[in-house]
């Protein structure tokens, strides 16, 4: 049996759910970031498998989309790490549960 579209989509869906679970349950900000990266890569896998197995026109759009996502994810990670450093300097922790100054 050769792997087809549905196999790739299933892997993508499982990866996405794993990433989402990590992002929502991890207490360390860096852990949350890792979860987000997994989610984005699941999206990339989904887009590429649609582009590879799709019929008709439009595979290029999916591949171009992936390149843009990779680029933007890198930019976002840079800003996230900078903010994490800034929070760590102020509070000596990047545990998101302990970041609770903002309450009424």
């Amino acid at each position: 049996m050769t792997p087809g579209l549905e196999h790739f989509l299933t892997v993508g869906a499982i990866l996405f759910c794993l990433g989402l679970t990590i992002a929502l349950s991890k207490r360390n900000a860096i852990g949350v970031l890792m979860g987000i990266e997994i989610m984005l890569n699941a999206v990339n896998l989904t887009l590429l498998s649609f582009a590879r197995f799709g019929v008709g026109h439009g595979p290029v759009a999916g591949q171009a989309f992936v390149v843009f996502i990779i680029t933007v994810a890198a930019a976002e990670a840079a800003v996230a790490l900078a903010l994490a450093v800034s929070v760590y300097r102020n509070r000596d922790t990047i545990d998101v549960d302990k970041l609770n100054l903002l309450r009424s």
Binding site: A23, A29, V32, L33, I36, E76, V79, A80, L83, A84, S86, V87, N90, R91, I94, V96, L99, L101, L102
Partner: peptide, 11 residues
């Protein structure tokens, strides 16, 4: 507070 807001908003 501001950097905490920034990090939360980003994540």
């Amino acid at each position: 507070r501001s950097s905490e807001a920034g990090l939360k908003y980003l994540l």
